[in-house]
Nucleic acid binder design. Structure first.
Lengths: 244, 244
DNA sequence: CGGCTGTTTGATGAGTGTCAACGAATGTGG
DNA sequence: CCACATTCGTTGACACTCATCAAACAGCCG
């Protein structure tokens, strides 16, 4: 599995710059699986992007306040979007896994609103926004896909905004990650999970201790296992039933 | 004030169809105030929209599951966006006041994800999306503004997603409404507030009773007053200090 | 080995949800 | 215009989830 490789600092499949077969911009979903789109438009996009940049844990992709120039797409690893509140504490407002697009918060007024960092080592692609917009003036499909991605992000927030208890928050998060891995051809039952419990607790709006206790309970009930930064969903029906 | 008029079923300023001086698509912010943009592009937009449709309390603008065709912009009144969870209960995921755009959740896959209803009687404009997209292929400005609006919505969710206690949730909401009224030339200290406490509690993720108690506390401390579906912020510094 | 950082455990209390009941406001039909 | 029904907001008593504080433990790296 990709991330495991990255962790061990082993070799990573190297693809030529310009290749893009991961992000939502260049793929579509067929039968719950992501499939690469073949078209002139995609070739045009690939001509402007810079792909598969390596990044180490805790390094920054972009910083709040800086001038918005690029969108980014996760190729491997996990990334977090951090917002600094007026009171000065950091709140993790979003978490990204492979295929997702980062940087939409910079479009509004030309400055990023959050800081995005790598949770684990990984890689990402850079999509210069103004060239992309140039393309989207020409190709209806690109404009379409861009707007659909932003719409999807809005929906994600609308729906996630939900009122769950601690256990449901965690399970719902793990389920999202599971589905995203599955859609990209990996196992839905076992996948890398490198975010720290502190970060995850912050993201879910829980105390670190509460999250730890919830994990403990889920392990005890043989719902899931967490070892070596890898999650295994042991009992999928029981796992899903938490959300009812 | 507009909404007060609407409430009493008194006369409403009638403007010719096609006029659009309210939504974020046709205005820009200068010194915290919304100003109408004058340009060919705006004229083009005004040619396709259907403006100032009247609507009664509880009537539906669009329904979850229906085919996405239009964006909508609030002209007067307040609207709520309702999401039906798998468990069958309704969660209010967004609230719209004048100037805001509704319907972005339909772009992703061509079907609306939520149902939008009027909280009070009011009026709105209809913006047919495909004609708008047509325009945005021609006018860079329109494409720009569309994406900026979606970006703003994403930012709003990122930032609102915050972890506040009950009192802070309420004050933060009232503050948002206050700022939006102010930006449109109305008083920041006194404005209509027609959403029911049940709906608001749902939206904020609180129990109705908790919200009632928070209101009581704020009234008792002379921070704000709520009478006749109208909020008055009595002590602005005290009001804002709740969020520290 | 010692010093980090990340996770776990226990004890305690504050903040909210829940239940139940009532009062106030609003709407409806005769 | 009044009687009734219905929705909406308020209040009190209580239970429970979860945050907080304090401390210990585990893994990792120089």
């Amino acid at each position: 599995m990709l991330n495991t490789n990255l962790n061990n600092n082993k070799k990573i499949e190297q693809k030529p710059t310009g290749y893009c077969g991961d992000c939502e911009l260049c793929t579509k979903t067929v039968d719950n699986r992501r499939v690469r789109i073949q078209s002139n438009e995609i070739a045009a996009i690939e001509a402007i992007i810079d792909s598969h940049i390596m990044i180490e844990k805790n390094q920054t992709v972009y910083t709040a306040g800086n001038t918005f120039q690029n969108l980014y797409t996760v190729h491997s690893g996990m990334f977090k979007s951090v917002y600094l509140t007026q009171q000065g504490d950091e709140r993790i407002v979003d978490v990204f896994i492979p295929g997702q697009i980062m940087g939409f918060d910079g479009i509004h007024d030309g400055k990023y609103k959050t800081t995005v960092k790598a949770v684990s080592s990984g890689s990402y692609c850079v999509i210069p926004f103004y060239p992309l917009q140039e393309l989207s003036m020409k190709h209806r499909d690109i404009q379409n896909r861009l707007m659909k991605m932003m719409s999807e992000k809005i929906i994600q927030f609308e729906i996630t905004h939900s009122e769950y208890n601690a256990q449901q928050k965690l399970v719902s998060f793990v389920k999202d990650v599971s589905e995203l891995y599955y859609s990209r051809g990996f196992s839905a039952k076992q996948f890398p999970f490198q975010i720290s419990q502190r970060d995850l607790a912050n993201y879910l709006g829980l105390a670190e201790e509460t999250l730890s206790r919830v994990f403990k309970k889920l392990k005890k009930n043989d719902v899931l296992a967490l070892a070596d930064h890898q999650i295994t969903i042991i009992d999928m029906p029981k796992f899903l039933s938490v959300l009812d």
